[in-house]
Design a protein around this nucleic acid. Sequence first.
DNA 1: CTGAAAGCGCTTACAG
DNA 2: CTGAAAGCGCTTACAG
Lengths: 353, 353
Amino acid sequence: MHPASVFVMSTPGVRRATLADVARRAHTSVPTVSKVLRGRSDVSDGLRARILEVIAEVGYVRPGSTTAVTAAHPQPLVDLVLAGVAGSWANRILIGVERAAVEAGVDLVVSVARGDDEGWLQRLLARDLGGAVLALVDMTGSRLAALQAARVPVVLLDPSRRPPSGVSSVGATNWAGGHAAAEHLLGLGHRELAVIGGFKSHLYSQARVDGFRSALAEVGIELASERIGYGDWATDDAEEVAAGFLGSPSRPTAIFACSDDMALGVYRAAAALDLRIPEDLSVVGFDDLPEAQWVSPALTTVHQPIAEMGEAALRLLLRMRSGSAAVDAREEMATRLIARASTAPPPLRTSTS
Amino acid sequence: MHPASVFVMSTPGVRRATLADVARRAHTSVPTVSKVLRGRSDVSDGLRARILEVIAEVGYVRPGSTTAVTAAHPQPLVDLVLAGVAGSWANRILIGVERAAVEAGVDLVVSVARGDDEGWLQRLLARDLGGAVLALVDMTGSRLAALQAARVPVVLLDPSRRPPSGVSSVGATNWAGGHAAAEHLLGLGHRELAVIGGFKSHLYSQARVDGFRSALAEVGIELASERIGYGDWATDDAEEVAAGFLGSPSRPTAIFACSDDMALGVYRAAAALDLRIPEDLSVVGFDDLPEAQWVSPALTTVHQPIAEMGEAALRLLLRMRSGSAAVDAREEMATRLIARASTAPPPLRTSTS
DNA sequence: CTGAAAGCGCTTACAG
DNA sequence: CTGAAAGCGCTTACAG
């Protein structure tokens, strides 16, 4: 770097360059730089060239210029794109992202992407923003490509599929969460366990089921395929799957549902068979939605730090933008089991296996 | 072209007004005018009003403002400023405002204003956006003044105090809601009623209490002053007030709490005295938060269409911006009583009054 | 609260 | 050509 850079005390980007900065680095005076900027002819070609060079170097922009307002926002905008803004999941994401945005002094543009609507993408590209956190369930390759081509830094928040290389993401420790659910049930004495996963193609479904299975394997329990079911993440579907488990002769004493919504389906299936929770059946969910505290009995579940994931996503984005983080980072926030009233030791059985 | 030149077109041939011009005409100093423009609070209301008048009169525009740029290329951004982003109230506002924004094809910048932090205001003024919906509990006159001086259209969402003239707002029919609560309880046969309001200075508290009182007066029941209490909108404070009502010899058979949070305080006070709801005591809340459905017994409450208020606020803002709505409009969205399990006919009494 | 004073970033007029 | 000096519009820090 040029030795004269010693004069540029503050970090570039924090303080906007002034005419004085340019003058100093070009070894000339402020009035002369002003002349160059105003297109006056009474400046020698050599000096003008040197000044123009420095102007480009330090990124000087005239106050009030269009570039100044559009490109050099003192506080840039960052996008948060959500599949919807209603619901606890979206709200907690927003809480976290907003918290980090306030802290960093950036403003947040919140867009909603519904189905095939690409209005948000067009507007985002038109605005030429500082970056985007995408909390979309379904992020197609073409949309990502458009963002990459426009050099918009992007972080995927809890993507359902493995992101393409070169795309950063933030998620939760799903495997560890499934593992913790199994350990909790094993610790209570359960040996007859079943699991209900979500869509098989979803990363977090696979990871939760795998973590659960691994913990069982560690104590020598093989999870039979009849004890693994899959739902569509929603209550109704899980109710059917649970009914299948509970209606079989080798009824499990505990079920791990990979979402709280699905755990509620297990509640319903148990109620239909007059099985009491937790006396006859223990249930563990995943997510820790607000409902988990309200339902009766209160649901033991694996807490996902959703707001913290949002916070981490925005921070990662800002680090990527400033060049201090790789563009294909992956961060995972820790999950933890919250023991409530839906789990207890298994009922005593007449026949011991 | 200098952006400001577009604005100068409105007064051709005339030198652009400066702070000094404004100061002179307002018989004050340049620093004071500067303060008003930046939304600082340390200017007296009278002086601020005079300065704002002169600013409008001479058509002063902040240099470097993007007014011209925005006029040439309307950036479809609108601000939503919230006191916080967590909680059901904020979330429902956001849902409504976002819905209307998507519909209108504008993007939403969500800012959080915490206490005395004025970062959001500085950023908003720097961006010079298409307008702002302010869902702040506490909107000081100095901040509004800065927005008015910058010609940013503004709509206050459910303001706690009557907005100054020239400022639009959207609220709920609070008086009608209090009236409906009373009618519901009267219809069940209650004659011994009490009410718990929120902060006396809050518009919506006064209106709810007044509506309640009016409905009683219509059937010839005078609400005694011992039957009117005030809390701070929160559960704890309301519990104390309710304990006072319920501990008195002339115990009411029904209590109307002006917020759901306060209604939960009534629940607690009743539980502490072994009073059953609704057999011994009927309770009506206000807001219809999600909790109202989850608590036991489910709370009868006055529903506030919060998302719809958000929607209305953004629509009003866009109409104001396009000139098809007055800048001092007031819209009220209808509340409605949702009867659940916390209200029933009053208990039979041995002594009839 | 109010505004005099100092300061900042830029422009203008002009001496060399 | 070049840049010191004066000036302009605005902001900030602070005395009263």
